[in-house]
Simulated assay, not measured.
Amino acid sequence: MKLISGTITNLENAISYSTAKQKVISNNIANIDTPNYKAQDVRFNKVLTNEMSKFNAIKTNEKHIDFGSASGGHRIVTKNNTNYQHNGNNVDIDQEMTEMAKNQIQYNALIDRLSSKYNSLKTVIKGGR
């Protein structure tokens, strides 16, 4: 029996994805004037996560990483198929700023939901007080 539902794990994975996306967007914006810089994006790879959960591995050392705890199912990809500037750079500042705002809203919602889950657990542990 699981003591805590998978919701908290899913929220933690979503927060990890959102954090990675924020880092990538910030890196893209920081390199807007770098010649030949290619913008990056974070893609959520649900299929990989599902397949990794099917592996049955035996840990021989406590420092080994569990197959079940995949990296949240996201990966960073480089957008090589466009050029927006004459110097070979393909960062679109308007798109990056829009993505940053959307990501910030999503991150805040995830943090609020996770906080709510922990507060519910705290209430249950205290016996409803």
Rank of each mutant, 00 (worst) to 15 (best):
S71A: 14
N89Y: 02
Y107A: 02
N31M: 10
F67Q: 07
N45R: 14
H86W: 08
D33H: 13
I111L: 15
D41N: 15
I65K: 01
K102D: 13
G72F: 13
V47Y: 11
R113M: 10
L48I: 07
Q85E: 12
V24R: 05
P35W: 03
K21M: 11
Q85A: 15
N119F: 04
E99H: 07
I58F: 06
S71K: 14
S71I: 11
N80W: 09
M52A: 13
A109E: 05
K117S: 01
N50P: 00
N103E: 06
G73T: 09
K23I: 08
Y107F: 15
Y84F: 15
K46V: 11
A109F: 01
D41G: 06
G88T: 05
N89K: 06
Y37F: 15
T60E: 10
I111K: 06
S53F: 05
H86P: 07
N45Q: 13
K54W: 02
N108R: 10
K23H: 10
H64P: 00
V47D: 14
N103H: 06
K21Q: 15
D33M: 09
T49C: 02
Y118K: 00
D92P: 04
K59V: 00
A109V: 02
R113W: 00
F44E: 08
A70W: 09
G88M: 03
A30V: 07
T82Q: 08
N119W: 01
K54T: 12
A30F: 07
S53W: 02
I65A: 02
N45E: 15
N27Y: 09
Y84C: 03
R113Q: 12
I58S: 05
Q104Y: 09
H86C: 05
T78D: 04
F55L: 14
S116L: 10
T60R: 10
N28F: 06
R113D: 00
S116D: 02
D66I: 00
D92Y: 07
S69L: 05
Q85P: 01
A101I: 14
K54R: 14
Q40F: 06
D112G: 02
G68E: 00
E99L: 14
A70F: 09
K59T: 01
D112K: 15
I65L: 10
A30M: 12
S69V: 05
